[in-house]
Amino acid sequence: MKKFIIHTLFFICPVIIIMISMELSLRQIPNDYKLKSEQIEFKKEAVETLILGSSHSLYGINPEYFLDETYNLAHVSQSIDLDYLLLQKYIDELPKLKTVVIRLSYTTLHEQLGETKEAWRLKDYNLYYNLKVSNKLKFNSEVLSVKLKNNLKRLKNYYIKGEVPISVENSGWAFLKKSNGGKSLKELGQIVAQKHTAEDDNLVIENIEYLEKIVNLCNAQNVKVIIVTLPAYKSYIAHLNKAQLDKVISTGLKMDNSYNNCSYLNLMSNESFNTDDFYDADHLNTNGAKKLSLFLDDFIKQTYN
């Protein structure tokens, strides 16, 4: 038995040592989550408008165009349960907070990050925001949550090539730099719409509850909530499932009617957004983000000030 344990430990030790070294090195690499958690800490005394949501908000709402001090706390694939946890964590530390802008996309009610192929991103909330989003060991570690192949690439890019994987600006906003694969907006619209159409509505009730919790949390602090369905390209809208889309829109309208501190804006087919404003079928580019941000700022000024 002794021999077995010693031999096994000898075999496993190098693997464990490499894993620990990799974990420590990976955590040293700057990333958007770490940076944003630092930025919000730094700005928390001043923030008046907070933007939450997924990549739609991250790339589509630029705080630079808001009159109030605004910060964008959205992340790629961030689902409504995580929006709630982030808001819950920071709301008491944001004394000047007046408005929360939150997206209500086609997928918002039907998805939670932990249930998608992007679930590995949960580790970023655990590690860099100190949110307890998952108790699984896997989601509390860089090495265990991301494939070795991708982790080696990250290490090489940062430590050898000197590339810093940061995409966000000082305001928390980010713009899309990568190419969209050369596909036309028309082509992309159909592909993405199909990808975004849910197989079931198992999460809808839970996600509506999260939305209500967000509004209630804001209400308790006298904070207004603007729920926005962001503009999308016509080929995307054309291929959406009607029932899923109707559920999203009716939920937004219901929230608007039921809560005094809540407004719903459905800008999905807004005609002031044209081909030049889109990066791809469901994401705005820099121009589109400017247009939307100015629109939202105007809406806040007219409605609440």
């Binding site: 075999f11 190098p14 693997v15 192929k117 494939k147 070795l148 192949k149 080696l152």
Partner: peptide
């Protein structure tokens, strides 16, 4: 033999699918 086992361990970590 041990080197071969390490190769397998590496392949498991490197190529493990979803």
């Amino acid at each position: 033999r041990i080197a071969f086992y390490y190769v397998l361990v590496f392949l498991i970590f490197y190529f493990n699918g979803e």
